[in-house]
Nucleic acid binder design. Structure first.
Length: 599
RNA sequence: GGACCUGUGGUGCAGUUUGGAGUGCACGCCGGCCUGUCAAGCCGGAGGACGCGGGUUCAAAUCCCGUCAGGUCCGCCA
């Protein structure tokens, strides 16, 4: 994008714009001292301006000892800011630098004004040497001057612009919702803001604008969106920012799951086309939750490669001499296998590690190494030839491959083999980095067993509409009720959760009853929604794709902090600003707070 | 709440397994030389209680315990 140049006393041209056609011009440049090469009787300075983040915005200055500027520049430290007046000259052929866009010319310095000087730098700004992240966060502005981070911030701005442009054109109304709101009892830990006016009462920062957007639906906003800040006081991960993050929050009235899918597929296609060089194709494939677990061992599968998990419980359970297989059906265990490509020759240690990981997860792990002449491994001995063939055939393993096998409860077997699948995909480079492989995971269960209490918990979101409505809830088998609840997944990353919302108070009451809550609980916890839903709420559905996570995928970053200007660190501290910090007793008193020392 | 990895001049690392003098590398910094470099070069120099505290030992950067900081993961994240 072209940034208009403000011509003023600091500069009249950008460093990176000088070309042979400018030879003879008198120019004024402003920027940072990026490098100095002092020959005693001759001084070269690379001057870099803000456009230099993409390496295009720099030019070589030459200073001769007969100008006063020589001594000034010579004494300046790197990253000092200067304004330089000089004349553009052509370089002699043997001194042209092909690595610079401006490498055919240089600027002979006539005068220099030091705009500000820099101390000795805490880490090198030029050059892409690795710098510890702690230092990068503490001196975020210097980290930015290195370039790549600003490029990612530009990508972030472009993504936001594309999202706004696209969704606005599709009739979505951008509405800002409050940042100071009421604490809600469900979900993650809230960030609380003490009220000065009302002693002992608190605002909460929203974990998501969930209730507000549903209220907008009731209010007659047909389509809503917002690049919404969300605040959750939970532990962080590489792909999970502590404290705050952004969602492309959207909701549609008089809409079905299909309507949401089709709008999001349009949006994602537009994003991929406008914001990346990668490819994606809509419509996105759909996987049932159970199907995804069985085939890929996870509810967020990376579909850029195959390696599906195969079930051989029916084929081998109870029929072999191998006790772990023979006893499986009676214990309601499953026997599943995963092909490990070209792993037959891996060391014993690798297979032992797999078996150990399986045992730690509470299942039995075993393996088969397929050689041209036969098979080896922990399963080879007790199984007949045809039985080992079943294992290999089920997952498509051939000579040179290995078969990883896990036996135990279904979810645990899935988790173990799913993890192996992910690891193999990464180690073997099976996933094309230029592809964004989106999919929908649908039909999540509405409830799940609480292992401790034996009761039922909402497995995802208490606001989701159960499939089959009230009848399904009253049928007496909560475990079999599915929700209109869906995830958008891409390349093994969960980008988003969404749902057709439950807008019917009587269905809500029935759902909460199963989870062990009376109607007064809904009224108390979600008074606004509960009341609103008594005044003709439209059926509505929505979703909220994670803005930062989409950016991670587009920018090939493994860590969220790389796409955020001023991120908190893993421990939720801001190393640059020093937040959180203690406050004065006066402030505490005003807020009616007293700090109790940790015990 | 838990597990694991890392912590050595300003920066990035090696040294830790097998205890023996703060030893080393690259960059940066300070001084000197240097008129065609482009991450300039050459010479010289400064800069370290090896994160912190305790323990074992004749002797600890190195082994043990604790603690702090940074990171990765599990729990958690409706």
């Amino acid at each position: 994008m072209e940034i208009p140049l403000a011509v003023n006393r600091y500069r009249d041209v950008r460093c990176g714009d000088l070309r042979p056609g400018d030879v003879g011009r008198s120019v004024r440049l402003a920027g940072w001292v990026a490098a100095k090469r002092d020959h005693g009787g001759l001084l070269f300075v690379d001057l870099r301006d803000p456009a230099g983040v993409d390496a295009g915005g720099r030019v070589q200055l030459v200073a001769h000892p007969d100008v006063r500027a020589f001594a000034v520049l010579s004494g300046l430290r790197l990253e000092s800011a200067v304004s330089v007046g000089g004349r553009v000259v052509a370089r002699t052929p043997e001194t042209v630098n092909p690595k610079l866009a401006t490498g055919a010319v240089e600027v002979v310095v006539e005068a220099v004004e030091v705009l500000s000087s820099a101390d000795v730098l805490p880490f090198p700004v030029e050059h892409d040497t690795d710098v510890g992240e702690e230092a990068r966060l503490r001196y975020r502005y210097l980290d930015m001057r290195r370039g790549p981070l600003v490029e990612r911030l530009a990508a972030r701005a472009r993504l936001a612009a594309v999202v706004r442009d696209h969704l606005s054109a599709r009739g979505f109304l951008e509405v800002q919702t409050p940042v100071l709101t009421a604490s809600s009892p469900e979900g993650a830990r809230d960030f609380l803001v003490p009220s000065r006016l009302y002693p002992g009462e608190f605002y909460a920062l929203p974990q998501a604008p969930q209730q507000f957007k549903q209220l907008l639906m009731v209010g007659g906003v047909e389509r809503y969106f917002q690049i919404a800040p969300c605040f959750r006081d939970e532990a962080s991960r590489a792909d999970r920012s502590p404290g705050e993050f952004y969602q492309i929050d959207l909701e549609m009235a008089f809409a079905t799951q299909e309507d949401v899918f089709s709008e999001v597929e349009r949006l994602m296609e537009r994003i991929v086309v406008d914001c990346s060089t990668k490819t994606a194709s809509a419509p996105f494939p759909r996987l049932g939750f159970e199907e995804s677990i069985d085939r890929f061992g996870t509810d967020k599968p990376d579909l850029r490669f195959g390696l599906e998990i195969a079930d051989v419980t029916a084929a081998l359970g109870g029929t072999t001499e191998l006790p772990m297989f023979a006893g499986a059906p009676a214990s309601r265990h499953v026997i599943r296998v995963l092909r490990a490509p070209e792993a037959a020759a891996r060391p014993r240690r690798w297979f032992d590690d797999f078996a150990d990981a399986a045992r730690d997860a509470g299942v039995t792990g075993a393996w088969l190494q397929l050689d041209a002449g036969g098979s080896r491994g922990s399963l080879a001995r007790k199984l007949t030839g045809p039985e080992t063939a079943v294992l290999g055939d089920a997952c498509g393993a051939a000579a040179g491959d290995a078969v990883l096998c896990a036996v135990g409860p279904r979810e645990r077997v899935a988790a173990v083999l799913g993890e192996q699948r992910r690891t193999l995909g990464r180690e073997l480079g099976l996933a094309d980095p230029a592809t964004l492989s989106f999919c929908w995971v649908v039909d999540f269960p509405m409830f799940e067993r609480n292992e401790e209490t034996g009761g039922w918990d909402f497995s995802h979101n208490p606001f989701s509409m159960p499939q089959g409505g009230l009848d399904a809830l009253l049928a007496g088998d909560p475990g079999s009720v599915l929700a209109y609840q869906y995830d958008l997944v891409c390349n093994g990353v969960e980008l988003s959760s969404g749902a057709v919302r439950n807008h019917l108070p009587e269905v809500m009451e029935a759902a909460f009853a199963i989870a062990g809550y009376g109607p007064e609980r809904i009224r108390r916890s979600f008074p606004a929604l509960w009341n609103a839903f008594h005044y003709g709420p439209p059926p509505h559905a929505g979703i909220a794709p994670g803005f930062d996570r989409i950016l991670m995928l587009l920018e090939d970053q493994a860590n969220l902090r790389e796409v955020i200007a001023f991120p908190l660190n893993q421990g939720a501290r801001d190393l640059l600003m020093g937040a959180p910090s203690a406050v004065s007793d006066t402030q505490l008193a005003e807020l009616h707070l007293r700090v109790v020392p940790a015990t």
